[in-house]
């Protein structure tokens, strides 16, 4: 436990909170990077996902592409892109945006697909236009699964951003690699704990958001949330959303 005490001391040491390499700066870099990468991915994936979900077309292609992307090791993609574009933030942005697309895409279209067909059919029969069906029926009802997809993507980007410090001087991952270089285990462990805390915090926030976006009438039907086998796609059961690459 001595190691953890050292790590804790490192985390609490005021000296580590100043300057461009301090914890606050690294944390902001890490979070900022995550927000930008996930937003970029969402900007690309959400419209396509909605379109696939609404029309039912292009699903096979989306699944195949996501599957292919999933098997590609993150570190390989990162180092390869870094060789192409040089050391810096470019490579991580490209690599992580690409990696964040499949879960968001899957969240968007499975959200639509999960809606009871009769609801959509009846919306059409009473005279809703396709755009109205999408806006007032499919988007609100599909939102929980879309958020689940964004959560997967976010956690993955947070994790991979740590790894990205291998090819770029940014983020909390720097502490891990710097510690590794100088054999300063307190720094490695302290940095690791910070990343883990960040990830767990984000996981918690997303769990809350996911609950909030379940439309009231849908939530009302659920006998119990905890036996309801969770609104999120069970990890593993939807490989398209849950991705194992950290």
């Amino acid at each position: 436990m001595n190691l953890f005490a050292d790590a804790l001391n490192w985390i609490l040491d005021p000296a580590n909170y100043v300057g461009p390499g301090g914890i606050p700066v690294r944390l902001v870099e890490h979070l900022g990077f995550t927000v930008v990468a996930v937003s970029l991915a969402a900007l690309i994936a959400v419209p396509f996902g909605f379109l696939i979900g609404h029309t039912g077309r292009g699903r096979g292609l989306a699944v195949a592409t996501s599957g292919g992307l999933r098997a590609i090791p993150t570190l390989g993609l990162l180092t390869l892109v870094a060789l192409w574009v040089g050391i810096g933030l470019g490579a991580p942005y490209v690599a992580l945006t690409i990696l964040a697309i499949p879960p968001i895409l899957a969240g968007a279209y499975t959200g639509f697909e999960a809606i009871d067909r009769t609801v959509i059919d009846s919306a059409r029969s009473v005279g809703m236009s396709e755009a109205q069906i999408m806006r007032t029926v499919e988007v609100p009802l599909g939102l929980p699964l879309l958020i689940a997809g964004i959560r997967s993507a976010t956690l993955q980007v947070v994790a991979t951003a740590t790894l990205a410090a291998y090819v770029a001087d940014f983020g909390l991952g720097r502490f891990l690699f710097a510690g590794l270089k100088t054999r300063d285990y307190a720094e490695m462990l302290g940095g690791s704990i910070l990343v883990i805390l960040l990830a767990v915090l984000l996981e918690g926030i997303f769990t809350g958001v996911q609950r909030l976006v379940v439309p009231k009438g849908v939530a009302a039907a659920r006998p119990s949330v905890d036996r309801g086998r969770s609104a999120r796609p069970a990890s593993g059961m939807d490989p398209a959303i849950t991705k194992g690459t950290h």
């Binding site: 009769t118 609801v119 009846s122 059409r124 009473v126 005279g127 809703m128 009438g217 849908v218 039907a221």
Partner: peptide
């Protein structure tokens, strides 16, 4: 079609109500 449907009442088996609306 959309205008036509809005002028005709439609009732279906599973009510087809929007679950997220009162």
């Amino acid at each position: 079609p959309v205008q036509l449907r809005r002028s005709i009442g439609y009732v279906m088996q599973n009510s087809g109500l929007l679950p997220h609306r009162t």
